[in-house]
């Protein structure tokens, strides 16, 4: 991740990962690609930033993992992550919190006119 925006990005990374997993199950490499493409390069993650977040989410039982061999025989088994019911609840809670947070930020930034 870009050093300048590192802390900003880390703050919302868990929510974004949970969001992506509400769409479908994904493996680590795929999550990195999706974050990069969907954000038009804003969230270009390194492995060292992604996996510890996945570990935290998994340890908190917000997501769970399973191994799957895709049809192509040449490919390696992949470790997929899926969101749990607890994870969906957490996602909604965190999203509400984030919205309030952003509203608060804009309220301050708008002081004195734009």
């Amino acid at each position: 991740m870009d050093d300048i925006n590192k802390q900003l990005k880390k703050g919302v990374l868990e929510i974004l990962i949970l969001k992506l997993l509400t769409l479908r199950d994904m493996y680590g490499y795929q999550l990195i690609q999706e974050l990069d493409e969907a954000s038009h390069g804003v969230f270009r993650m390194k492995e060292g930033s992604l996996y510890p977040v996945l570990y935290r989410l998994e340890d908190d039982q917000f997501i769970e993992s399973y191994w799957e061999q895709v049809n192509d025989r040449r490919s390696v088994p992949r470790k997929y992550y899926r969101i749990t019911a607890r994870g969906r609840t957490e996602y909604k809670r965190a999203l509400d919190e984030l919205k309030r947070f952003i509203t608060g930020i804009y309220a301050i930034l708008d002081l004195g006119g734009k």
Partner: peptide
């Protein structure tokens, strides 16, 4: 971490 990096790299190498 070693296990995840291994899978990650192998997947990327496809």
């Amino acid at each position: 971490i070693a296990s995840d990096l291994r899978t990650h790299i192998q997947t990327a190498c496809e």
